Simulated scan of single mutants.
Amino acid sequence: MSELVTGEAVALELRPARLPSRALAVLLDLIVAIAAYTGVSVALMFATASLDVAAQIAVSIAAFVLVLVGGPIAVETLSHGRSLGKLAFGLRVVRDDGGPIRFRHALVRGAIGVIEILTTFGVVACIASLVSARGRRLGDVFAGTLVVRERVSAGPTAFVPPPPPWLTGRFAELDLSAVPDGLWLAIRQYLTRMQQLDPQVGWAMAQRLAADLVARTGAPAPQGVPPAAYLAAVVQERQARDVRRAFGNGGVGGVPAGGFGPGAGVPGAFGNSAFQPSSAPQQPYGSVPAPAPVSWPATAAPPVPAAGGTGADPVVPSAQPPAPAEPRPSTGFAPPA
Rank of each mutant, 00 (worst) to 15 (best):
A23Q: 08
V40D: 12
V225W: 03
P289T: 12
A334V: 15
V235H: 05
A186R: 06
G155E: 06
G99Q: 08
P284W: 15
V243M: 05
F275D: 15
K86S: 01
L44I: 14
L185W: 11
D181W: 04
G332K: 13
L66P: 07
R188H: 14
I57Q: 09
Y230M: 04
V294Q: 10
L19M: 04
A23G: 15
D52F: 07
A54L: 15
P321S: 13
G309M: 00
A290H: 11
A17C: 10
S279R: 06
A300L: 04
W184I: 15
Q189N: 13
L14T: 03
A54G: 13
I112N: 04
A229N: 05
F247W: 12
I57W: 06
L28Q: 10
R328D: 13
P163Y: 01
V32S: 13
V32T: 10
V255N: 01
A219R: 13
G90R: 03
R102F: 12
A290R: 09
A54C: 13
D140H: 14
A158T: 12
D52M: 08
R238I: 04
V152W: 11
V108F: 12
F171K: 11
A111T: 13
P199G: 07
P20W: 00
A47T: 05
G144M: 13
F270Q: 14
A55D: 14
L78P: 00
W296A: 01
R104K: 10
V75W: 00
A54T: 08
P281G: 11
A154W: 03
R188Q: 15
V59W: 08
A228M: 09
A298L: 12
G139E: 08
L183W: 03
Q189Y: 02
A154T: 10
T6G: 08
G7T: 09
V32H: 06
L28P: 03
G7M: 04
P293V: 10
A312F: 14
A269R: 07
E326W: 04
G309V: 03
L78F: 04
V69S: 01
A43G: 15
Q283V: 14
D52T: 11
M1L: 11
A63N: 10
C126I: 12
C126Y: 12
Y37W: 12
E116N: 01
Y190E: 01
A215C: 04
A125G: 06
A178E: 00
G122V: 08
V59C: 10
A74I: 06
A269W: 12
A88L: 15
E150Y: 00
T217I: 06
Q239Y: 02
A49F: 15
W296L: 01
V5W: 12
L118F: 14
P161K: 03
I61T: 10
V69T: 15
A158S: 11
P227I: 06
L87H: 10
Q200V: 15
T299M: 15
R193P: 07
T120R: 09
G332S: 13
L91H: 08
D313V: 11
T120V: 14
Q276C: 14
P336G: 13
G268Q: 05
I127V: 13
L138K: 13
A211S: 10
L167C: 04
P220E: 05
A337F: 06
V152Y: 03
G253A: 04
I117N: 00
A306N: 02
V316M: 03
I61R: 07
T6H: 09
